[in-house]
């Protein structure tokens, strides 16, 4: 395997882990916004309790993605940052407001009114960021980013289009689904658990619908990815596995096998992302730039691979411990 293929793989792993971790933290904000019924306050409480210790660690995966991009694929970084200037800026505003509001609410021992206000900011910014993140992915997949033109960049046209926005909504739904599934395991209170079980089922169905809808749109809007997702040798097995995973996840939720549902939901999210990545590979920015063309020289890639390997040795046990401390020893479903 070439170093750039390994690093493209590392990028995918980091993105998947960002989705599974920070994605669900964003999803928690969605359920904070949509908290309803007699247990609304308890629902919000549960979300805050679940996110508190881990969101900052989850968040670092995104930083790793950005750093890997500019160190290893510099020729792709400039067009990405120029073409996606507006959605990335909005994503950042969302990230800043959300993180700060969360900390202000959790640690500022202030009046209920101001707590509620920061809670609102936290929830709304949790909506914006996933949509923008998904829109960026959709813009790339649809091949809407110009590479190597000297023209002044178009601020809105690349991403303000049906396909990127559909992927944005799909991302939001997926994150909300992940959060709801995880939250069923965060409480021992049956009523709360049922609340999130119902939310998980509903958002799961929504994810399925949006995924199918996006695939339909891709036919005309993202032909390269669509072609690979329907035409390549791995396409049929991939769709079968993904569909089976989706059905099994919903089934497990239905039968209240919550631990199994959590594993299947995470697998489903990983499969969706991997499907996009596989369909797009070897293109970093279709249709103009491959990973190999964008890559930095070998002397750069090799130390980074070494740093990643060394870092992983440190990181994996630490992360495992973090999650065991806070997410272990919970009642199994």
């Amino acid at each position: 395997m070439t170093p750039e293929a390994l690093l493209a793989g590392a990028l995918l792993v980091a993105l998947v882990l960002y989705g599974l971790g920070a994605g669900a933290d964003f999803g928690g904000g969605v359920w904070d916004l949509l908290a309803r019924g007699p247990r609304a306050a308890a629902q919000r409480e549960l979300v805050a309790h679940a996110i508190g210790p881990i969101w900052e660690a989850n968040h670092v995966w995104l930083i790793l993605v950005v750093v890997l991009l500019f160190v290893c694929f510099p020729a792709g970084f400039a067009p990405l940052m120029t073409g996606l200037f507006v959605p990335l800026t909005l994503l950042l505003f969302g990230i800043v407001l959300r993180g700060s509001a969360f900390a202000f609410r959790a640690y500022g021992d202030v009046s209920d009114r101001s707590q509620a206000r920061w809670g609102r900011v936290f929830a709304v910014s949790s909506l914006v960021s996933p949509v923008m993140l998904g829109a960026c992915v959709g813009t790339i997949a649809a091949g809407r980013l110009p590479v190597g033109t000297a023209l002044p960049p178009r601020l809105f046209e690349p991403w303000l289009a049906p396909f990127p926005l559909a992927i944005g909504l799909l991302t939001l739904a997926l994150f909300a689904f992940l959060a709801a599934v995880y939250l069923t395991l965060e409480t021992e209170q049956a009523g709360l658990r049922e609340d999130f079980r119902r939310r998980a089922l509903a958002s799961g169905v929504l994810v399925g619908a949006l995924a199918l809808g996006s695939l339909g749109l891709a036919r005309s809007e993202a032909p390269l990815v669509y072609g690979a997702l329907t035409g390549s040798a791995w396409a049929l097995p991939f769709h079968l596995v993904t569909a089976a995973c989706a059905v099994a996840a919903l089934g497990a939720l239905h039968r209240r096998r919550f631990a199994r549902a959590r594993a299947l939901a995470a697998l489903l999210a990983a499969l969706l992302l991997a499907g996009w990545a596989l369909a797009q590979y070897p293109w970093l920015l279709p249709p103009g730039l491959t990973f190999a063309e964008a890559a930095a020289p070998r002397q750069v890639l090799e130390p980074v691979l070494l740093a990643l390997a060394g870092g992983a040795l440190l990181l994996v046990p630490s992360l495992a411990w973090l999650f065991r401390v806070f997410k272990g020893a919970r009642p199994r479903g």
């Binding site: 500019f70 160190v71 970084f77 940052m81 990181l315």
Partner: peptide, 30 residues
């Protein structure tokens, strides 16, 4: 962007290492 396209590969190693420092910091702070 032009600065990063030029400099990213050269001065990127500390940023990559910093990423792991951030991870450790955030994990143990939690």
């Amino acid at each position: 962007p032009r600065f990063m396209a030029f400099a990213g590969p050269i001065f990127g190693l500390p940023f990559a290492l910093e990423g792991f420092a951030f991870f450790t910091e955030a994990i143990f702070l939690g």
